[in-house]
């Protein structure tokens, strides 16, 4: 009997100690956490509030609470639905393509060769270019019908010039986004590759695995968390893409995504801040759902690969 009581008190003691330990670890985080909450969540909450109001600047009128009207609008507004579709397609294709390309480049760079560091730096540079500059460079130096490098190459092989940015506005933008984001994915995946123990690869060799089998059954499952991280960060950034589009197509056919659309509705001329806020809230919620779902699917895919 005595043993039982002393056990339970010991349990409580341990619990108390654990709590203390947890507090000791979390306390130093508090200032940073508070700051982050104030800086990120307050504007979000304000947007949330605005999204339930009617608030236009021209003609100037007082803010007025209208409930969920902005939201019902959002779902019936055909232009918004189009913009949302564009956002999803652009983000998905850009992320998927840059992850695939980034993995390929990372695999190539993961071996030793002369000038490795130099090549690595060269490959990273697109990621360091400002979005506006990237858009301008591609529009004028690469895609342009008159001076573009791509068209020059096409002309050399006897193909007529194509004004890429106006003919294929959406895919031109995806091209530039992939160009900018492949280095980022490459960096993350390269870090993953270099964290893999070389003896595991050797063990697979001795076990008779082909390079293909080694990649799909051992390296890829190992890279899974890195790829997930890349997809997550890439999606969060790419859903917000704005500069590239403004510069390259100005939102031309099929390339108006949600940020651009929201911009047009608010400071870009529409001056309807209430409904613009509602649109952005819808996008945030959709992004969270999409990212969660996307990661599930990705995990499932890689898990299945392993079980097979």
């Amino acid at each position: 009997m005595a043993a039982v009581t002393s056990n339970s008190t010991r349990e409580e003691q341990v619990k108390a100690l654990q709590k203390k330990e947890a507090r000791r670890r979390r306390l130093p985080l508090l200032p940073a956490l508070l700051f982050t909450i104030v800086v990120t969540q307050v504007p979000f909450l304000m947007s949330l509030y605005y999204s339930f109001t009617k608030w236009t600047v021209t003609p100037p009128s007082p803010r007025e609470w209208i409930g969920i009207e902005n939201y019902t609008d959002a779902f019936t507004n055909m232009f918004f639905r189009q913009a949302a579709m564009t956002s999803v397609i652009m983000t998905l294709t850009s992320v998927v393509l840059s992850v695939i390309l980034g993995t390929g480049v990372a695999l190539l760079l993961d071996r030793k060769f002369f000038g490795q560091g130099f090549v690595r730096t060269l490959i990273i540079t697109p990621f360091l270019v400002m979005p506006v500059v990237a858009g301008l460079v591609w529009k004028n130096q690469m895609f342009s019908a008159a001076f573009g490098v791509l068209n020059w190459v096409l002309n050399q092989v006897g193909v007529e010039s194509i004004e890429f940015a106006s003919k294929f506005p959406r895919w031109s933008i995806v091209g530039v986004l992939v160009w900018q984001w492949t280095p980022f994915m490459m960096l993350i995946i390269l870090a993953g590759l270099q964290g893999q123990s070389s003896s595991v690869i050797e063990a697979a060799k001795v076990d008779g695995a082909s390079p293909r089998a080694t990649f799909f059954q051992i390296t890829l499952p190992h890279l899974r968390p890195y790829i997930e991280l890349g997809v997550l960060l890439g999606s969060i950034y790419l859903i917000q893409v704005f500069d590239h589009i403004v510069v390259m197509t100005g939102g031309g056919p099929g390339s108006t995504n949600v940020p651009l659309f929201v911009n047009q509705r608010s400071i870009g001329g529409g001056w309807r801040f209430g409904s613009a806020s509602a649109f952005s809230i819808v996008v945030v919620v959709a992004t969270i759902i999409l990212a969660t779902f996307g990661l599930r699917v990705l995990s499932g895919l890689l898990e299945g690969e392993e079980a097979a």
Partner: peptide
């Protein structure tokens, strides 16, 4: 290695972690 029909035990075991 795969054509030699050998099996190897590594010092750090080199198990496939996933």
């Amino acid at each position: 290695p795969q054509d030699r029909d050998i099996a190897m035990v590594f010092q750090n075991y080199a198990l496939y972690p996933q």
